[in-house]
Write a protein that binds this DNA or RNA. Structure first.
Length: 521
DNA sequence: GGGCCTACG
DNA sequence: CGTA
DNA sequence: GCCC
């Protein structure tokens, strides 16, 4: 069950890297020297000349010669059609609609960028006519579709590199069958069918890591393995980043974040400054730190920060939910240093029974107490939770949590589906919290569902469940979310009694996959 | 030298 | 200010 | 701290 097949073809330290480096050290360079292998050796191209000026046409013809099997004069013979025409009416004056449906119809940039990158690119960003989007994707020569028959077979990706692909997180098919096959006392009516577009593809669409550029400015294009070849460097920089954040130097912290992200997406072991000085977000200062690391295996500034009493205290303080850098600094300035200091300061009774905490929460959420001092009450609760929340959650327990919640949700509103996102979806073997995105095919039924579920979970609480913080925020008028603390029922084989952070996100069916994709950066 | 993601409580 |  |  953990995984069926690797879904992400990311780099690992073994196997692929040599091949990778030998074929495309820097993708954006030298399409010219690569004469032996055309990027699209089997693709026949047709160019719609309308709206293109002379020089552009010449350029495209030249590019076509270098990258494709050739140009064809009859559009019927083509695999791919290049056009700057985006209006269906006008396009139909040049290519019959029925013919167009059998091709990939893309903008000229697709060819330019392919040549620039020196490798096949997916058509998706270059779809010329939105009316032919699906057909274009289906006919895209860059093996965007499934099954993928392109040449990733010579690169063995060790299965261990994938704790579990994102697919196992979705597996709505399993959820559905289990929810309809399993007798559910609360649910008389069978779950309605869920439209295919709300279900994850099974088996999953493969991701071609070779297509991703490590020089990209965009984080969403920087797929990277869980532990990268330059992990130690990344961790060292991360110390400085955290230090900056704790000291309130947000801008600097942001720069370190970006630099770390870029380094994590760089698939080779860094051995020289020259190797990485072209990468975005690596500037004077950080390149200097990289160089220092290459020379000495460490970064003095990071060592200094990591070993400072201040950093240690601020880190512990801000690990408490509700305490951020600013409050942490204030507490430190008051002379506090340890968790015990915090407990005294916030008046946490050591043997305070949990029921008291529940009461507190309840009052906090539903009571009429003034909002005065709410922050402090929160911190007091969070201090009690801290120990539990510091314990990571294994993947199978994450899945169990999803199942339990789905059981309650489908009892409430049959036909819902869910995808576990967050760290789990990124393949982490253990999670700090659990994020689940839900939807229902019926837009109307999604409205208010978040609150209903939280209320139900809270009612079911009676010993096993612990509803918390039923704050419901509407987002874009369509996303509702709830931040909760969850305990598995004692009947569950995974029951530990530990409280877990659980975020519930409800999306309208139209934006469901956007929410899934967008929940993490 | 100005701007850095954003929305909400 | 803190969290997602 | 880096980018434009």
């Amino acid at each position: 069950m953990p995984f069926k097949r690797p879904a992400i073809s990311h780099e690992t330290s073994s196997g692929c890297s040599s091949r990778h480096s030998s074929t495309s050290e820097v993708p954006s360079k030298r399409p010219k020297t690569n004469i032996s292998a055309k990027i699209y050796p089997h693709v026949k191209l047709y160019i719609v000349q309308a709206k293109l000026d002379g020089p552009t046409i010449a350029e495209l013809f030249s590019l076509a010669e270098r990258t494709c099997a050739g140009l064809v004069s009859d559009v019927e013979d083509a695999d791919v059609v290049l056009t700057s025409v985006t209006m269906r009416r006008r396009f139909e004056r040049h290519v019959p609609w029925d013919v167009a449906k059998t091709k990939a119809i893309v903008t000229p940039s697709w060819l330019r960028d392919s040549a620039e990158e020196g490798k096949p690119l997916p058509c998706e960003p270059y779809v010329a006519l939105q009316d032919l989007r699906d057909e274009t994707l289906a006919n895209c020569p860059a093996c965007d579709k499934y099954p993928c028959d392109c040449e990733d077979t010579d690169c063995e990706y060790p299965a261990q590199a994938y704790p579990s692909p994102p697919t196992s997180s979705t597996s709505p098919t399993e959820r559905i069958s289990s929810s309809s096959d399993t007798p559910n006392p609360d649910d008389d009516t069978p779950a309605p069918d869920i439209p295919a577009y709300l279900l994850a593809p099974s088996p999953p669409l493969p991701t071609d890591f070779m297509r991703l550029s490590h020089t990209s400015r965009y984080a969403c294009q920087r797929a990277h393995p869980l532990t990268c070849p330059n992990q130690k460097l990344a961790l060292e920089l991360d110390i400085i980043k955290k230090g900056r954040a704790l000291e309130g130097e947000d801008r600097s912290a942001l720069s370190y974040s970006r630099a770390i992200s870029v380094i994590k997406s760089y698939p080779h072991l860094i051995t020289s400054r020259r190797q990485v000085e072209k990468l975005p977000y690596l500037g004077t200062k950080i390149l200097g730190l990289v160089e220092e690391f290459l020379d000495t295996g460490r970064i003095a500034e990071a060592r200094g920060i990591a070993s400072s009493e201040r950093f240690e205290a601020l880190t512990i303080f801000s690990s408490v939910y509700g305490i951020g850098p600013s409050t942490a600094r204030r507490l430190f300035a008051l002379g506090l240093r340890t968790l015990e200091d915090l407990e005294v300061y916030y008046g946490v009774e050591k043997d305070e029974p949990e029921s008291q905490l529940v009461e507190l929460e309840h009052k906090e959420n539903f009571g009429s107490d003034a909002k005065v001092g709410l922050g402090e009450t929160w911190v007091k609760i969070a201090l009690g939770l801290r120990e539990d929340l510091a314990i990571k959650i294994p993947r199978d327990e994450v899945e169990e949590m999803n199942q339990v919640v789905m059981r309650e949700l489908n009892a409430l509103e049959p036909g819902c589906t869910s995808t576990i996102v967050g760290g789990y979806r990124r393949g982490k073997p253990e999670s700090n919290d659990v994020d689940i995105v839900f939807t229902h095919p019926d837009t109307q039924k999604v409205k208010g569902l978040c609150k209903r579920l939280v209320n139900r979970l809270y009612e079911r609480d009676l010993s096993n469940f612990h509803g918390h913080n039923p704050l419901r925020t509407t987002h874009w008028d369509s996303l509702e979310k709830a931040l909760t603390v969850f305990i598995l029922p004692q009947s569950s084989p995974f029951y530990t009694g530990r409280r877990r952070r659980l975020d519930l996100i409800f999306a309208q069916p139209e934006v469901y996959w956007c929410a899934v994709i967008g929940w993490w950066v």
